[in-house]
């Protein structure tokens, strides 16, 4: 009997097994996102060489990422070089808004993709070529789940939640808030009109991310924005 397959043929020189080849188990033991993380590492090194601080801004659609950036870019004009990568599924609308502030910007359209990944940022960086020492703002696709999983090579992840979204969001979207280095609570000018508890929201954020800092701001009115600027570039 053939010892390798038990097919009943006599022992002898190697023969074919027309009834089905043997399978082989290959051990991989690697992170699923190894390729993304590898590219993110490249981005991080590339940015560090140029002393560029990259911030990955994430929120659900409409929390105010672009509005916050418009004001922030105007603040840093003349103080610090800036550059922006805009991620959206479709359109260049956000990049057009940013361009009007006079800042260098590149739009990345992800099509059906619901997040930016390290490869997309890599390509965007080689086109945008931000100046040395810049603050690079990356506006991720509006989505409170998927972008949290993909390291881009950024220095920090900033999560924005607006007061119209509900106090409980950090508990409902724990992955995003667990990944955050800073949580901005935006649209606080609307607090008189909505049922939102800023302190409790901050508590919920700390329940999933004990050391995370929260900053209440109004991107349209300007309240609290100095704290955000200080966080970006401590005086």
């Amino acid at each position: 009997m053939c010892v390798t397959c038990g097919c009943g043929r006599p022992d002898g020189p190697a023969h074919h097994h027309p009834h089905g080849p043997l399978t082989e188990t290959i051990t991989l033991e690697q992170r699923i996102l190894a390729k993304n993380d590898h590219l993110a590492g490249h981005n991080r090194a590339w940015l560090a060489e140029r002393r560029i601080t990259a911030l990955n801004l994430m929120s659900s659609p409409g929390s105010g990422k672009t509005t916050l950036l418009e004001r922030t870019l105007r603040h840093f004009r003349g103080r610090r070089p800036v550059a922006v990568v805009e991620g959206d599924q479709e359109t260049t609308l956000d990049a057009d808004r940013i361009r009007r502030t006079g800042s260098p910007v590149i739009q990345v359209n992800t099509g059906a993709g619901c997040h930016l990944d390290a490869g997309m940022l890599h390509d965007a960086l080689s086109t945008l070529d931000p100046p040395a020492g810049a603050v690079l703002f990356v506006e991720n696709v509006g989505n409170l789940v998927c972008p949290a999983m993909f390291d881009l090579g950024e220095a920090a992840k900033v999560v924005i939640i607006s007061v119209t979204e509900g106090t409980d969001k950090p508990l409902k979207y724990p992955h995003m808030f667990a990944a955050a280095d800073l949580v901005l609570i935006n649209k606080i000018d609307l607090l008189p009109y909505v049922d939102f508890d800023t302190d409790r929201c901050a508590e919920y954020a700390r329940a999933v991310n004990p050391t995370v800092r929260t900053l209440p701001v109004s991107a349209t009115g300007g309240a609290g924005m100095d704290g955000w600027y200080d966080w970006i570039a401590p005086a």
Binding site: P21, L22, T23, E24, T25, I26, T27, L28, E29, Q30, R31, I32, L33
Partner: peptide, 10 residues
């Protein structure tokens, strides 16, 4: 964890 452990080929 988010890992690929192994695969069977053949």
């Amino acid at each position: 964890e988010l890992e690929i452990v192994s695969m069977e080929v053949g």
